[in-house]
Nucleic acid binder design. Sequence first.
DNA 1: ACCTGAACACCGTTCAAGT
DNA 2: ACCTGAACACCGTTCAAGT
Lengths: 248, 248
Amino acid sequence: MSRDDLSKEIIIQAAIELLDAEGLEGLSMRRLGDRLDAAATAMYWYVTSKSHLLILASNEVWGEVVLPDLDRVDWRTAAADMAGGLHRMVSQHPWLVTAFASQPVYGENKARHDDRILAVYEKAGFVGAEVDDAATTVFMFVLGHALGGSTSDSLNRQLSRGSGNSQSRVQQSLEEAKEVALRFPRLRERLEGATETGYGSAPGRSFEFGLRAVLDGLEHRIRTRPLPPSNHAVPVALNTLQACTPCP
Amino acid sequence: MSRDDLSKEIIIQAAIELLDAEGLEGLSMRRLGDRLDAAATAMYWYVTSKSHLLILASNEVWGEVVLPDLDRVDWRTAAADMAGGLHRMVSQHPWLVTAFASQPVYGENKARHDDRILAVYEKAGFVGAEVDDAATTVFMFVLGHALGGSTSDSLNRQLSRGSGNSQSRVQQSLEEAKEVALRFPRLRERLEGATETGYGSAPGRSFEFGLRAVLDGLEHRIRTRPLPPSNHAVPVALNTLQACTPCP
DNA sequence: ACCTGAACACCGTTCAAGT
DNA sequence: ACCTGAACACCGTTCAAGT
């Protein structure tokens, strides 16, 4: 009859379940409390704030990404594996991109992941700031790609468990968007074309295409120009610490 | 003494100013009302919801991106121009990425932009679904790149006009993140290295590097493999309409 | 040490009532 | 036609009080 004892881990777990099921706006301290049979304010004993909880949850799912062993594979397969792993992870937890966009995220698992990414592009032959540039490029591509997924995800959520009123409002938005698109030839072409070959039917294919192009571009860059040494740059997305330096 | 008359345009403009100054969480109907010397609820006469207002504001800033004339430039400069223009726009309006991540965005200006993007990669020589793939790849790279910028942006905002209490909490988070990073060799290296060569000092360079690599990859793909015809795919980020098809 | 309940300062949105 | 004010159902967070 009684609930599980509260703990940091249980709270994080419940938060992730809530986020996976309902997205970023589905997470509130009160609903978290309901789910754990506790007062919303009980969470504050274990977690300093909602923002902190979001950092902990983000770092937790970051741990799901398996990291390649650089001694056993060449840089390109390692890069593809990491990008693929990250892509799979954010596909399972679309809220992560939203969270990442609205506040800094850090933690042990993310740091380990970032460190390994840099190692991959060191091994590829980049030096100096271009290590960070190459890593950032791929990382950004993956996250950007997930952006589209997370919006269509939240849209579907609003459509499925919408409160009737908001449901019809979303429908109306879709109509409006469609109407606008029909006024532009290429968008119209795609709206009228067979949808079964669209993104929804093969979401992986589009990702693979882009990833290959990005890696091709990086590989081309290594081969055509043995790079001169230079200083390191801190990529802002891999390490948001940098954000504090330009402060007053 | 009296305020400007209310109108859709004025409301959108004020919303953008609020968003530019304080980010997504700085926008509330009540604060918008304050800024326009009106009741928060007065907005609902011109705008159906906050979400709708965000769509209008997003579409408005999308209009700031200048589109290249495809009859006057080759595809690669057109692609670079569009990517650069989009990048500049989201740098000036970092909240757009957050908005884009949390809800669908559409409108005339965005549709025109999307249509032109597709035209660019048609001109490049892609056919069928790969037109959409190529367009999506570059688009995603730009948006992903902006993701990092928008988080460091909101971080700086919290640091500068923080309520003392939250300010020290952000400081503490930064310390914590730093401490974690120091446990990983490559991150440590970068933290201890000279910061004046970091991302903050040359944010453009990192973008240019990545963009060149992405375009190199796409160019390589066109040249090495004359592509077979196939059906169109609707990229989910260019056109979120697709999200409604897999619904029950 | 751990948790609750009331309270505070916010939200988006609806709707009757005013002009 | 346009706007206000009160009200409702939510938020995150603090803090005294309980066990």
